[in-house]
Design a protein around this nucleic acid. Structure first.
Lengths: 346, 346
DNA sequence: CTGTTAGCGCGTTCAG
DNA sequence: CTGAACGCGCTAACAG
């Protein structure tokens, strides 16, 4: 038998389709007897309303797209969880899109919203296609990224302050030569974190020696190369603050392969608190981003934007947190550390 | 101005809506001049067809759901990529669902298919709700899991053979006492891998000492506990084969904290080749599952199932591969390894 | 090659 | 409180 429609139910119950529809959506507007009858027939027939017809009629798909920079990054998994939870609580579905680091693909996903596949787009990617008219922009919310163009609803963290907190902590442990492995240079997020590093050093009366700053690309290998470069150049340091956990893990590996111990000889701090941070040996001290909450907030903003209309603006800043694990330690024996470093340096 | 519909375009171009529709979907069935005219108007108006109306009319959403056991597991990310690529090539969208290790949630997602939110479900979760009638099961494809119930289209790997290959490799390196950290016991996947371990040992004329088998739950912590348990019990071993990379990483950490070196004192092999495998120090020798391909194959099966109808059956087995990294080494100095182990054992 | 017509299944008027 | 009727935007017949 073909799947029953609302009409099948109506005929069988001897009522109109409108009554069936009301019974399902606004039960209190229907006389109890009628309602019970309808519900009985619905159950008998196993009727389940066609979501497509409903969406079509309502001109809303109750679906949002979470578009991320690179879906291979586990960081986004937790954000997705937050989005999904907030979404399903509000009756929304979530599609995840992968920008594959290609700005053009963002346009693709914007089109999906225009085509009404989805009602809105949560952007976790660096940029919007440059050529689009802001007036006709579909509902967009930005999370964790800096999108210059317009005043879009945004949820963000204070990257500079978080980075400064990490460096402060190292300073508190007695470190004076703290290297920073940064993210790619043109990106505002990387710059903000590097600024935090610089600020915290300055606040402690320490010099932000340019030799201590190495640029990476957030990859494990970048962390390795960065440390290799520091050692090659003979730059003295007793701590490393990396702009993400993967680079921190790479740094740990490289340090170790040069015979340096973490944290005894060199302390290492990461950023993000992804699944890597706890898996690495030693577990990484890092800055935790409340990924779940970030996702949930972004979804909440999206719902608000959808209800409010194009004018909606908002910026919510969520707090980060320093998570202390065992990749960091006080500079207990300054001389020993220096000696180890000297030995590892060519 | 309201967004233009196909009718707006038709009026403006002085043709019928059918012609506009055809121009967009079957251009060669339209006279070139007409086509060009229509396309011009489409461009002028910025008309973009409403995907919802289309889906509604066609009774197909061109969307599939990838339902995974636990979305927090990065393993699924790569599978998702494969699914998404195959899907978007065929004009499908992919929703990712999280079963959160709760069988009831599978039913939820099945309902989404019944409600026509999606056309089908790719299952990467251990079971189906027990109470459902197989005849009315919506399009489902199973990937990597063993779902007993019915003959559903499936893509799988040969878990036993893959596990045996890992153990063979260790045997080839001269190991004789090879421990196995298994997955949870009632699951067929865990059992298959443990069987592979047993088979390979037997084939090499070695005893599968029950003391060498420790059950875990695929978590980092389980890997740690397993090794701790082996050492506590004073069970001698020179190699560990874990049923996944996370437990292998945990094993490495625990071994090291007991002063044992990997791979000098103990070799460790993982399974899956997730993002962990390369990040751990030392990088793990492991069994690579072709995750991307698994996803792509599953999607291909789904498309076939959708086209063929309920009768469709298929089973595709994709090959795994041993990836040798540096967590494994020959039993070079058997005596030294034994000594180290004895020292670490209470 | 093109136009006309008839719905897809539901929600929402507007009467009653 | 309930029913009849319309239409969301598009595609698939069927004529012409």
């Amino acid at each position: 038998m073909a799947t029953p429609t609302i009409r099948t139910v109506a005929e069988r119950a001897g009522v109109s389709v409108a009554t069936v529809s009301r019974t399902l959506k606004e039960p209190d507007k229907v006389r109890p007897e009628t309602r019970d009858l309808v519900l009985k027939v619905v159950a008998e027939l196993g009727f389940v309303p066609n979501a497509q017809a409903r969406a079509f009629r309502r001109q809303a798909s109750d679906t949002v797209i979470l578009l991320v920079r690179d879906i291979g990054n586990p960081f986004y998994l937790d954000v997705y969880k937050g989005v999904e939870e907030a979404a399903s609580a509000a009756g929304f579905k979530v599609l995840m899109g992968d920008a594959r680091r290609d700005p053009a693909r963002v346009g693709l996903y914007l089109d999906m919203v225009r085509e009404r596949h989805a009602d809105g787009l949560i952007l976790m990617t660096g940029s919007l296609p440059p050529d689009l008219a802001m007036e006709t922009l579909p509902p967009v919310v930005v999370a964790l990224e800096y999108i210059d163009g317009g005043r879009l609803p945004t949820v963000r963290i204070d990257n500079a302050a978080a980075a400064a907190a990490a460096v402060d902590y190292l300073v508190g442990l007695g470190h004076r030569r703290i290297a920073h492995i940064s993210g790619p240079t043109p990106e505002l997020m990387s710059i903000a974190r590097a600024d935090g590093w610089r600020t915290a050093l300055a606040a402690a009366g320490l010099e932000a020696d340019p030799a201590l700053l190495v640029w990476g690309d957030y990859s494990l290998q970048a962390g390795r190369s960065a440390v290799a470069s520091l050692l090659d150049r003979g730059v003295p340091f007793t701590a490393v603050f990396a702009a993400n956990d993967e680079m921190a893990a790479g740094a740990v590996n490289e340090l170790r392969s040069h015979g340096l111990r973490v944290p005894e000889d060199v302390s290492v701090v990461g950023f993000d608190d992804t699944v890597f941070a706890a898996a690495v040996d030693p577990p990484l001290t890092t800055i935790r981003q409340p990924k779940r909450e970030i996702g949930a907030r972004a979804m909440a903003l999206m719902i608000e934007r959808l209800e409010t209309g194009p004018g909606f603006q908002a910026e919510v800043v969520v707090p980060t947190q320093l998570v202390v694990r065992t990749s960091t330690a006080p500079v207990a024996d300054r001389a020993a550390a220096t000696r180890a470093l000297a030995a590892a340096t060519p």
